[in-house]
């Protein structure tokens, strides 16, 4: 799933752009240094291929639904991680610009979740060790499937972290994760199937195209043990990062409760949904200390004053909002009429 501007805060969006921008800069420089001018048309054409391929659906076996290729892993296999990142970024950019997919600020997060993670995590750390020399069809299929699932799980984690850190959505971290991970498990399986199907075909028809651009020198194959160690380290780092992000963030509900009643919890408020969410939180959260409701975490974030819950302000807000809309539309109409008079058509 694509991250969207509507769920982002400037800090998180900016941070993701910095991360993706740095990755893109490194990959761009790498490609310039390699100086393979065949890549210029090849990357463009393969980007167009992925763009088109994403719109061709196939039936997922044993279900009634259909799926399609994402392309990150396939591109890494065909082009190596650096070129693949640039290509994925270009496809995502076209989607953001022309197809209302996410937004310009979220593009940085999407390039990270759907580009950096598959190309620099899933491909070198999962696909390459599992696929080996790509001679065995079974190993290729298994490697593609596993790498796709892992890559998309990490991508889903990325989305959740970014959304929770931004604080626009009210979904608490563990609930959000519990929603996203299973969905992306399914998407990962689909991606694995699609990628494997294509890679296996290419392996039979033109095996020279696989791994030709694989950077054997820059990304040495890892033994399963170091793969495990790397994944474990990544998990610990991610755990640390998310507890930093997650704990100072009050849930929207707690925040409102604190403002409205001066208490950090409303003991009496115990209707169905609340109780369910509380139980779900207690059972699902694997970060100790992130409880619901938490004890008094009510730091302010953002610099605008929260409107106090009072009737006068609410009404003023509503009236003002309507007035603003009227003014904006009126100005727009005036502008259009003026433009029509200047350039008669």
């Amino acid at each position: 799933m694509h991250m969207a501007d509507a769920l982002l805060s400037p800090a998180v969006g900016g941070a993701m752009w910095l991360a993706s921008g740095a990755a893109l800069a490194v990959s761009s420089r790498r490609l310039r240094e390699q100086g393979d001018d065949r890549l210029v048309p090849l990357m463009g054409v393969l980007g167009a291929f992925v763009f088109a391929a994403q719109m061709i659906n196939f039936a997922i076996p044993a279900t009634g639904s259909s799926g399609h290729l994402g392309g990150g892993l396939l591109l890494s296999i065909l082009l190596g991680p650096h070129a693949a990142l640039i290509v994925i970024a270009s496809v995502l950019t076209v989607q953001a610009l022309f197809f209302a997919d996410g937004g310009l600020l979220a593009l940085g997060a999407n390039i990270f979740n759907l580009g950096v993670l598959p190309c620099f995590l899933a491909y070198p750390l999962v696909y390459k060790p599992l696929a080996g020399d790509q001679a065995s069809a079974r190993r290729v299929g298994l490697a593609a499937g596993t790498a796709a699932v892992v890559g998309l799980q990490f991508g889903a984690l990325g989305v959740v972290l970014q959304a929770v850190a931004s604080g626009i959505s009210s979904l608490p971290f563990s609930t959000f994760l519990w929603l996203m991970l299973p969905i992306h498990l399914a998407i990962g399986v689909v991606e694995g199937l699609a990628t494997a199907a294509i890679v296996l075909f290419v392996q039979r028809a033109r095996p020279d195209l696989l791994g030709v651009h694989g950077p054997a020198a820059s990304m040495p194959g890892l033994s399963p043990r170091s793969l495990l160690a790397t994944l474990a380290t990544a998990a610990v780092l991610m755990g640390g990062a998310l507890s930093w992000f997650a704990s100072p963030q009050p849930d929207g509900l707690e925040w409102s409760i604190a403002r409205a009643s001066g208490h950090t919890e409303l003991a009496a408020r115990d209707d169905g949904v609340h109780r369910l969410m509380a139980q779900a939180q207690q059972r699902l959260s694997f970060l100790p200390g992130y409880g619901f409701p938490s004890a008094g975490a009510s730091e302010s974030h953002g610099d605008a004053a929260w409107p106090a819950v009072d009737a006068g302000t609410s009404l003023a807000g509503l009236v003002g909002g309507v007035a603003t809309l009227t003014v904006v539309c009126g100005l727009a109409l005036l502008l259009r009429r003026r433009r029509r008079r200047i350039s008669p058509e």
């Binding site: 979904l171 509900l253 409102s256 409205a260 819950v309 009737a311 609410s314």
Partner: peptide, 14 residues
């Protein structure tokens, strides 16, 4: 999900 999770009253009209 926001309306589902965040139910404290915020605006009041009468």
């Amino acid at each position: 999900f926001n309306p589902l999770l965040d139910r404290a009253p915020m605006l009041a009209f009468g």
